[in-house]
Design a binder for these strands. Sequence first.
RNA 1: CAGGCAAGCUGUCUUAUCGCACCAGUUUAGGUUGGUGAGGAAAGUCCGGGCAACACAGGGCACCACGCUUCCUAACGGGAAGGGUUCUGAUAGCUAAUAUUGGAAUACAGAAAGUGCAACAGAAAAUAUACCGCCUUAACAAUAUAUCGUUUCGGUAAGGGUGAAAAGGUAGUGGUAAGAGCCUACCGGCCUUGGUGUGAAUCAAGGCGCAUGGUAAACCUCGUGGGUUGAAAGAUCAAAUAGGUCACGUUAUCUUGAUGAAUAAUCAAGAUCAAUUUGCCCGAUUGUUUUCUUGUGAAAAACGUGAUGGGUAGAUCGUUAGACUCUGAUGGCAAACUUCAGGGCUAGAUAAAUGAUAAGAAUGCUGACAUUUGUCAGUUUACAGAACCCGGCUUAUAGGCUUGCAUUUUUU
Length: 134
Amino acid sequence: MENSKPYNSALIDNTFSKDERLSHKRLIGELFKNGSSSFLHPFLIKYEPELSAQSGLHKILISVPKRNFKKAVDRNLVKRRIKEIYRTNKSLVYPADQAYHIAIIYTGKEIHDFKVMKNKLIKVLKRLPIREQD
RNA sequence: CAGGCAAGCUGUCUUAUCGCACCAGUUUAGGUUGGUGAGGAAAGUCCGGGCAACACAGGGCACCACGCUUCCUAACGGGAAGGGUUCUGAUAGCUAAUAUUGGAAUACAGAAAGUGCAACAGAAAAUAUACCGCCUUAACAAUAUAUCGUUUCGGUAAGGGUGAAAAGGUAGUGGUAAGAGCCUACCGGCCUUGGUGUGAAUCAAGGCGCAUGGUAAACCUCGUGGGUUGAAAGAUCAAAUAGGUCACGUUAUCUUGAUGAAUAAUCAAGAUCAAUUUGCCCGAUUGUUUUCUUGUGAAAAACGUGAUGGGUAGAUCGUUAGACUCUGAUGGCAAACUUCAGGGCUAGAUAAAUGAUAAGAAUGCUGACAUUUGUCAGUUUACAGAACCCGGCUUAUAGGCUUGCAUUUUUU
């Protein structure tokens, strides 16, 4: 259990630190090119297994298109809500054998309530074949 | 008193749970403790500046921007104070011209350098014009002895009518056939001189009857300013101002003069040519050295330019405290100014932190109960998110506060 300490702390603490974010431009390109996808309005999920996994942490990317929300304030609000939902519901994707790159894209054109967004996003995340089956 | 419009100021708070970024401390290097964390516009990217790289002897043309004056400023297309013009209210005046005073607007250099443009209406629209009307010459007819009607040679811009605009305005038993700046007075305009003011201008006197309409946010002319790009700038580090490899460029010709035996060679001057620089032109600057070859030329060195470079779209710096802000004094009519004194202020991310959820308070609004006012329920809290940094401008903005403006109703 000594080796899996970062893995456990990430799960227990409901954190969402820099290590859990996907910020590498090339990897993002590959994810959008090769990744599998899953859609439930208003969310589009793209995911693919990380090949050179080291930490065991999933890397998440949250995207809200500028096309749908012109104002930076609105985009920030949606992003922050999605981030919050993921953070508080990490048990849907952990524990996992394989670390994944995951992109959560908000394709809706309206801002939904927090509760509505929460229910929908949980449904989508449950469908993903990431979590280890007990 | 109420609602409306405009301008300025302000731009909700507390707690709990779970989190994010940076900084500092501590650490057994897993963590942990503490601190800090969006705006008046952070927006639009419209001006100006700092900063950086590249380019650059200098001049002209083109292009772009600006355009009353003085002051402020790092600078500005920004601000302050002032002047002119136009519109408008009040008062005076003859219901006039105009004067005084308050308010609003102002892209406010030049229309006497040139070119262009003006629908419709109207007789005529920039070398003015004669439709009606007015006056006059002649002819004819009528009544009747100076009038009227028709035609006609002319005169006339006072009156009518058209227009956004009709070639200064008003008055005159001045003048005339009728009229007309034709003449006179007052007002307006232009020119000259003088006074006042830093200046835009203004005041006074004298002269000119005043033959020169509008439009420059039409071309244009004049004046002033502008090198280009933009933090994805750029610098440093990783063997790193290095070394290697590759490509390209480095050009001359003629004339004259001096030294010289010489048509060799060297030096100087000029012309042509090429290269460099630029949106274009003038101009300016540069055209290296050695060896080989009969020669075209070839080779080498040196210099310059570009490419290549094992690596993650590397890391760090640039990068967050200054043309900052508040208070007081000082100079100033005033300014978002000057000078002085004291205090205050540390966001710094980079697929991009500054949050999410819940509860409560506060503010306003609505409804009910109750009517000095309170209670309950519901609802509202805008515009909007830093991306190198400043000074402005523009646009957006719930509610609250202040000021100004006009309007309506009620009461007295």
